[in-house]
Amino acid sequence: MKKCIFIVLMIAMSFGTLQKAFAWGGNAHTTVTVIAERHLTPEAKEKVEHYLNHTLPFYAIWMDQIRYTDPYRPSGKWHSNWWDANGKLDVTNEKCAAYQVERLRKEMKDYKNLPDSVVRLNLMYLIHLVADMHCPSHNYWDKKAFPQYRYNLTNKKGKKVSYHSYWDNALNYGRRKMNAEQYADYIDNATPKEYKAIVKGNAYRWANTSLPNFLRTFELTPKDSNVDAYSKQQRIEIRNICDEEAKKGGYRLAHVLNTIFKK
C-alpha cells in the first residue's frame, strides 16, 4: 500500500513539478525586465525589440536556461560579483558579473558595427547579468575576508537550506501572490531624482552601493538559523532588501540600454 502511494505521488509530482531552480528566481529577473521596459526611451525600446525580436522579459532567465550548454557554458560563471580579500570588488576578474556588464557595455558602444547576432547575444547577456549582480546571494567572497559565507540555514522540518538558495528565492517567498507586473507596480516608485542617483556611475559603483545590503544578509540570516522562525521584522527587512535590489536592477538595466541606444 505504502509503495503504491509512493508511486502515485511520484507520478503526480512528475506532472506538476518543473524546473524552477532559476537563480534569483524567475520572479525577480522578470520583474527587473518589466521595470526596465517601463523606463526605456522609445529609441531604445525600438532597437531592443528589433535586435531581440522579443520583449525584454522573454530573455529574463535565458542565461540560466542555457548555462550548462555549449557554446554558452563559459558564461555560466558570470552570474555573481567577486570580492577580494580586502572586501573590494574584483574588477579584474572575468567571472565577475559587474566586470562582464562593463565589458559588454564597452563592446556595445560600437553596436552599429557589430553583427546583429552579436548585438542580440550581448543584449541577452546584459538583460540577465544586470539583474543577477543585484541578487543578494550572487557574491563570491574571498575566503580570507569571509571564511564562512557558504553556510546552511535550516527550516522547521530540520532540513538544510543553503544561504545561497534561500536568498535566490527570498523574493519568491515574499511576493508569491504577485505576478511580475503587479510586483513592478509595487516597487517602481522612485522619484526622478532618486532614479538619477540610482543609475549614476557604472556597474562597479552599482555593486559597491549594494554592498551594505549584501553584507546585511549575513546578519539577517545567520548560519543554522531557522528560516521558518524568522521574526516579522526580519522577514520585512529581507523582503525590503529584495525589493530595493530588484528596483535598482530594473532602473540600471533601462539605463544601460538607453545609453547604448542613445540617438
Binding site: F15, L18, Q19, K20, G26, N27, T30, T31, V34, E49, N53, H54, T55, P57, F58, I61, Q65, M178, N179, A180, E181, Q182, Y183
Partner: peptide, 27 residues
Amino acid sequence: KHFWSYGFSVFHSVWSADMHVRELKVC
C-alpha cells in the same frame, strides 16, 4: 504531450496574460 502543453510556461511563471500578449505582438 505534457511537455508541449506545459514545458515552456516554467520559463515565464510570473508573467501576466498582458505580458504574453505584448510578447506575441512583438515576436
